[in-house]
């Protein structure tokens, strides 16, 4: 065996080890959460209010709160992000300003979520007088999701062949008609795929909702956009670090974690399926 051969094998082995380690870690985390949380999952746990200072009862308001706030996040991030991407990709000239905008958007995805939280307090809670509410939190998470939506949407638009645009224009379509009828239908799936991944991340965030609307303990459901709300990630945080009898509520924390993980997993799965179905549709 020569030295080159040994080296190649060693390299391959190392890479495989890396992959293995990552796989084991992920599996260990999921196993830990699932094994300790699954016993807690009952109809009662999923669909009832917390009771007795959150030492008993369920997590229904946290589930509803997370769904509610994520819906608002989507409502802000999807139209604004897609609109921005359509402008950048279809209308904007390639000049310094456009490049600057694009660069800023890419960099926004690297801003820590706590910074978005503080920004949300200043803009939504205070300046726009929306108060600490589910809408303030939703908008804050929406801002955080925007870079994902814009970037994914731009990629999706770039993947639509130019010949579709030209073909439509040559038949007497206006530019907007060409985009609406012969570009967007083929991009929207890709746009949504990236957006859903962004939303899944947002659904699991604590910092951006911390000062903007999430509540510690509310044994009822949010009634309007200006209500405060409970949310799964924050509930989990409280149950695992802030509760007065942490050991007693540990199973609730694990149950909450499992529900959150499943929720995020389902969203990601949805995005993967969407992407897979789109692939069948594309050509060359």
């Amino acid at each position: 065996m020569n030295i080159k051969y040994i080296k190649a094998n060693l390299g391959f082995g190392l890479l495989r080890l890396c992959a293995l380690i990552v796989g084991v870690i992920i599996f260990a985390i999921l196993y830990d959460i699932a094994s300790k949380g699954v016993g807690k999952i009952t109809w009662e746990f999923l669909f009832s209010m917390p009771k007795n200072g959150m030492t008993e009862g369920g997590i229904f308001p946290a589930i509803i709160g997370t769904i509610f706030v994520t819906a608002i996040t989507a409502l802000l991030a999807i139209p604004l992000g897609m609109g921005c991407a359509i402008y950048l990709n279809e209308y904007a000239n390639d000049n310094i300003i456009t490049r600057l905008i694009r660069m800023s958007i890419r960099n926004l995805s690297g801003v820590p979520s706590i910074v978005y939280g503080l920004f949300g307090v200043v803009l939504f809670v205070q300046a726009m007088r929306l108060g600490t509410s589910v809408i303030s939190s939703g908008f804050t998470l929406g801002l955080m999701t925007l870079p994902w939506t814009v970037t994914a949407s731009e990629e999706a638009l770039k993947n639509v062949p130019n010949s579709y645009r030209q073909g439509a224009l040559a038949l007497g379509a206006t530019k907007w008609q060409a985009i609406r009828t012969n570009v967007l239908p083929y991009a929207v799936g890709g746009m949504l795929t990236g957006t859903i991944l962004g939303l899944a991340r947002a659904a699991g965030e604590t910092a951006p909702i911390l000062f903007t609307g999430v509540a510690f303990y509310l044994p009822f459901l949010p009634k309007s956009l200006s209500s405060q709300f409970m949310a799964l990630p924050y509930h989990l945080y409280i149950m695992s670090t802030q509760h007065h009898s942490i050991n007693q509520v540990r199973p609730i924390a694990y149950g909450t974690a499992l529900v959150l993980v499943v929720l995020v997993f389902v969203m990601n799965l949805f995005a993967v399926i969407l992407r897979y179905r789109l692939r069948k549709f594309k050509r060359d």
Binding site: P161, Y164, A170
Partner: peptide, 11 residues
């Protein structure tokens, strides 16, 4: 009307 070099049927 115009017909392009590379045929461009829509999907």
């Amino acid at each position: 009307g115009m017909v392009f070099q590379k045929s461009n049927p829509f999907p």
